[in-house]
């Protein structure tokens, strides 16, 4: 090192001619906030893997029930309680069609394979599981819509108009939020007959609260900024300011919050179905399947296993994706 240092002499240095036009040049393309978020999200391996798994589950939920041509409620007691068997995978103990070392399929002289096995009424669990997944996904979709439609509008109006309107809307919200959502949901489900519709209304009624709060906060922060004033000076209406300026600027927060309301909606449906207040037989949902299988847990654990795995996977993936989106849209919140 010392020898090379000695060979560097002062006269080797000289000023660089600075070209004025160079300093005005922007190197690299300009990136919008949206593009930036997408770029950050794509590099997040966990979030991308979760997205792929969710996509797979969605596809299976759509095509899965039609694989074998059984209906959700096709009962046949002669094929009851068959363990899972997949032709090509019989070397894996979990898919060998054996239970306690006995090949149940041989014993009952059944030649068709049931991939997830059958329940105590002989219904094909593969069909029922993917049907149940459909229900969970529908509920997730509804929760998202409720969040966006009710939550954003309520919070937007409350935050933007302020004053008396805000005061009234906030007091109402405070009272609604003061009651635990579990109590809301159970009361609503008691009044209506348990089922998809009741669960939907119940989740609609409670899931938008946090979104309304967050959007209101964003509105309060944004509405006094210069670009809003500029727009108003140019004669823009309230609606235009809200939908063209304020909401697009808070879209990051809205997306993040939506992503977190999806798993909680899926959880609530499963929870309600599990305690018997949700989807009821013959319809299936992941929660009710787990409940049915739970009765047989000690003898036939596979009946709980697959619905349990799928709902856990869905919840885990939605949570990881939510974390990924939060990091992508709001790097300040990166944890």
């Amino acid at each position: 090192m010392t020898t090379t240092e000695a060979s560097v002499t002062k006269d080797l240095f000289g000023p660089v001619e600075a070209d004025n036009s160079e300093s005005e040049k922007i190197s690299g393309e300009s990136i919008s906030a949206w593009k930036d978020a997408v770029r950050r999200f794509v590099t997040n391996k966990g979030a991308m893997a979760s997205m792929i798994i969710i996509a797979l589950i969605v596809i299976l939920a759509i095509i899965g029930p039609h694989f074998f041509g059984y209906g959700t409620d096709d009962q046949d007691v002669s094929r009851a309680n068959l363990p899972p068997k997949i032709g090509a995978l019989t070397w894996i103990p979990a898919f060998s069609g054996q239970e306690g070392g006995v090949d149940i399929y041989k014993e009952k002289h059944i030649t068709t394979n049931y991939w997830f096995g059958t329940d105590q009424l002989g219904r094909d669990l593969w069909t029922r599981t993917w049907n149940g997944t459909q229900i969970s996904l529908i509920i997730a979709l509804i929760a998202t819509l409720a969040d966006v439609l009710i939550g954003v509008v309520y919070g937007g109006v409350s935050g933007y108009f302020g004053g008396m309107v805000d005061n009234v809307l906030q007091r109402i919200l405070e009272i609604i939020a003061g009651i635990p959502s579990l109590v809301w949901i159970i009361l609503l489900i008691l009044i209506m007959q348990p089922g998809l519709f009741a669960i939907t209304v119940a989740i609609l009624a409670t899931s938008w609260l946090s979104m309304a709060r967050i959007v209101r906060g964003e509105m309060l922060k944004l509405k006094n900024q210069e670009f809003v004033l500029a727009s108003r000076t140019l004669g823009a209406s309230d609606g235009r300011i809200i939908f063209k300026h304020l909401i697009p600027n808070s879209i990051g927060m809205i997306i993040i919050n939506t992503m977190f309301s999806v798993p909680s909606a899926i959880f609530f449906e499963a929870f309600l179905s599990f305690i018997g207040l949700g989807i009821r037989s013959p319809q299936s949902s992941l929660g009710s399947l787990i409940n049915d299988g739970y009765q047989m847990l000690q003898i036939h654990p596979y009946q709980t296993l697959y619905p349990g795995i799928i709902i856990s996977l869905l919840l885990i993936c939605f949570n990881i994706m939510g974390d990924g989106l939060r990091d992508a849209f709001d790097p300040k919140l990166r944890r």
Binding site: F274, L297, S312, L315, F318
Partner: peptide, 15 residues
């Protein structure tokens, strides 16, 4: 933490 936040308590209890 992601696992424990996501997996419903009743599934965890059953396991």
């Amino acid at each position: 933490t992601v696992l424990f936040i996501s997996i419903p308590s009743f599934i965890f209890a059953a396991i």
